[in-house]
Computed example of a mutant assay.
Amino acid sequence: MSVTGEFEALYGVEPEGIWAAPGRVNLIGEYTDFNDGFVMPLALPHTAVAAVARRTDGVLRIHSADVEGGIVQLDVDSLEPLSGTGWAAYPAGVAWALREAGHPVTGADIHLASTVPTGAGLSSSAALEVVTALALNDLCGLGLTRPELAVIAQRAENAFVGVPCGVMDQMASACSVAGHALHLDTRDLSFRQVPFDLAARGLRLLVVDTRVKHALGDGAYAERRAGCEAGARALGVRALRDVPYAHLPDALARLDDETVRRYVRHVVSDNERVERTIALLDAGDVRAVGPVLTEGHLSLRDDLRVSCAELDLAVETACAAGALGARMTGGGFGGSAVVLVESRAADAVGSAVEKAFAEAGYAAPRVFPAVPSEGARRLSA
């Protein structure tokens, strides 16, 4: 049954529209977004789809085709941050954030279905938030821009759900263009669509979902954010984005805390890796991006310490099997890796990773191509 049919079966009326918002992979620039830095994500073809109709009685009803249980019913006037509403906190948080910003949201019936793998570091939560924000923006005539919707969605996750994420995931879902990567400055939300047609160059970007679930609300992410903020204070800058890469050795010498020093080294060097990647893409030297990805993985593994055995195995095996480069993507502690590979070698590299996981006794990974896809959009009136 279609999401329209499922909506009608649930709520007894037709939806007023169908919307979609994608998950994402991040090519380069990790843990830089909450440091006002640079990132370069691209949208996936996997999406969260929402069928939605307005209500005027203050009732918010939310249902997911992907989660066991019935309709979650809430009162928009009684929405409270950190209220323990489970998965429904993501769309409910968007309604709360819109109302907190002064926008008239008087209730809605929402039915969701998603093909974005959960817990894989591919921003399944941001897809839920952005698709809800776009639907409510359209239905309520709020007139918000895509970056403004991304900020609303981020506030929902930060303040309502309680995950201190940066804005990259929501911006990627809201603003991406098919066939491009999004070069985003997270300080002012300025961005550039960078052509990223790998197939035309005989290349492919693979995603290796390790199937190790990660949860960014467990404290490890927040601890690293706090460490980065402590580093910025110690260095007398607004954010680590303001530490020039050329001055990194001097900055590190001024830091007494070894953990903070490692975090600072990763963030400042990863910002430089984003800028280096952009320069390579602009020059048409796409294959040279591969070693930059691997360099980024080593920094995430050794300085930020957010990798895990499965991610390390995926990266090491892919590179040994002939990949141009690879790294973990997303928040880490599980989730996925991205692998840049010659198209003709993609199957062999994927098979090598699958074999290595089997030999290590790990669950079979899910390997699929990351095709740069369209951002959030309305599918039907």
Rank of each mutant, 00 (worst) to 15 (best):
L203D: 14
H183E: 15
D285K: 10
V163N: 07
I278G: 12
H247P: 07
G231H: 09
A283N: 07
A200V: 10
D270Y: 10
C228M: 13
L203A: 14
L149V: 00
Y221K: 01
R224H: 01
V194M: 12
V289G: 09
P147N: 11
A200T: 05
A234Y: 10
L280M: 09
G202S: 06
S173T: 07
V268T: 03
T259G: 15
R254A: 15
A253D: 13
S176N: 11
A181D: 03
G217A: 13
V208A: 15
D282M: 05
A279T: 06
L280Y: 04
K213P: 08
L149A: 05
H214D: 01
S176W: 05
D256W: 01
V194F: 00
A226R: 12
D218Y: 00
R201E: 15
T210V: 04
V274R: 02
D242C: 11
E272N: 11
A220H: 05
A283S: 13
Q193F: 07
A181I: 07
H183I: 10
D197N: 12
T277L: 12
A226V: 08
S190K: 14
N271T: 04
M168I: 10
R287D: 11
L281Q: 03
H266Y: 06
G179Q: 08
A251I: 00
V208C: 15
D188A: 02
V212S: 03
L248H: 05
A220I: 01
L206S: 08
L149T: 10
C228D: 07
R233S: 15
R211L: 14
F196L: 13
T145I: 13
V268P: 04
A234Q: 13
P147I: 00
R211N: 15
P147G: 06
T259P: 11
